[in-house]
Design a binder for these strands. Structure first.
Length: 286
DNA sequence: GAGTTTGAAACT
DNA sequence: CAGTTTCAAACTC
């Protein structure tokens, strides 16, 4: 019943790090970009090399691999609601992600082809202020499964347990680079961070129960879908979270060089703890 | 849906 | 670089 993930894949890795392809540029520019991308560390953005060459381009177009066609962002992208920034500041998620606004609810939007000049100026301004401005905020940590926020968060009042926190939003624990106050999103000493995902899934279900009728299709699709039917509670994200807890426990047992029976015991105990947590959160929302 | 809170980004 | 303001998203009622 439980579909265990490969040990090198965690719930924390839902957003893959991919090469970015810049839209609206000439073939020659694209070739230059591809050359630069291929001569740098695959999957990472090397600012010192990229920026001088790409500073005249839209910052970081549709997220796409170099071998795939760009996705239809009108279906995948979350629409922005900017009113004052003209979608030319990093406040605007579309702009910050290097995308043109499309199907957004923004007002006086300049983040489109019709205002390319203004857009280029804004891009340049942002890059002058911060050369890393258009780089992904979530980078890769030292371990393959340890994604980290590049700048760290500065949360003060949310305990880093709300989506205001960029780390929490990205489903990664806060790290030493963060300057947050009263953080409750640190990686637990026992390494049971995946329970956070479990709680998140339960939280999501709770909010969906309350707002399912009023949410747009996009909003419902943008998060992991959980059916409203109680017997459908164990959706993929929840199962993944539990599986990751078990895998972590297994790894810890391996590290501690436990024998088979002890390993089996701690995994079963962990499974029991997960189920108990699941029952607790599901019963508390009735 | 309106109003409030929050923290990143921008500005001084 | 620190403090303040602006902004849009998240959240609450």
């Amino acid at each position: 019943m439980l579909t265990l993930l490969p040990s090198n894949q965690t719930v924390m890795q839902r957003a893959p790090v991919v090469k970015q392809v810049y839209p609206g540029i000439t073939q020659q520019q694209q070739q230059l970009q591809q050359h630069i991308l291929h001569t740098t560390d695959a999957g990472h953005h090397e600012s010192a090399i990229l920026e001088p060459a790409l500073s005249n381009f839209p910052p970081a177009g549709h997220i796409a691999t170099t071998t795939q066609a760009a996705p239809d962002t009108s279906k995948l992208k979350k629409p922005c609601n900017c009113t004052k920034s003209q979608c030319l500041k990093l406040y605007c998620d579309c702009f910050a992600n290097g995308e043109f606004c499309s199907n957004c609810n923004c007002q006086n939007c300049f983040n489109n082809l019709e205002h390319e000049d203004e857009r280029q100026k804004a891009v340049k301004q942002c890059l002058e202020r911060n050369p890393q401005a258009f780089h992904p905020k979530i980078g890769k940590g030292a371990k393959a499964d340890a994604r980290r926020h590049q700048k760290g968060c500065n949360c003060k009042r949310s305990g880093c347990l709300k989506n205001y926190c960029e780390c929490y939003e990205a489903k990664i624990p806060c790290g030493s680079i963060c300057k947050c106050v009263g953080c409750k999103n640190s990686e637990g000493v026992d390494g049971h961070r995946s329970l956070m995902s479990l709680a998140d899934a339960a939280d999501l279900r709770h909010s969906q129960l309350n707002t399912a009728s009023s949410k747009s299709l996009y909003e419902q699709k943008s998060r992991t879908p959980l059916s409203l039917s109680p017997h459908h509670f164990l959706k993929k994200c929840t199962i993944e979270a539990i599986a990751n807890c078990l895998i972590l426990q297994c790894k810890e047992a391996e590290t501690a060089k436990c024998n088979d029976s002890t390993t089996e015991k701690v995994i079963l105990e962990e499974f029991g703890r997960c189920l108990s947590e699941l029952i607790h959160v599901s019963s508390s929302m009735k």
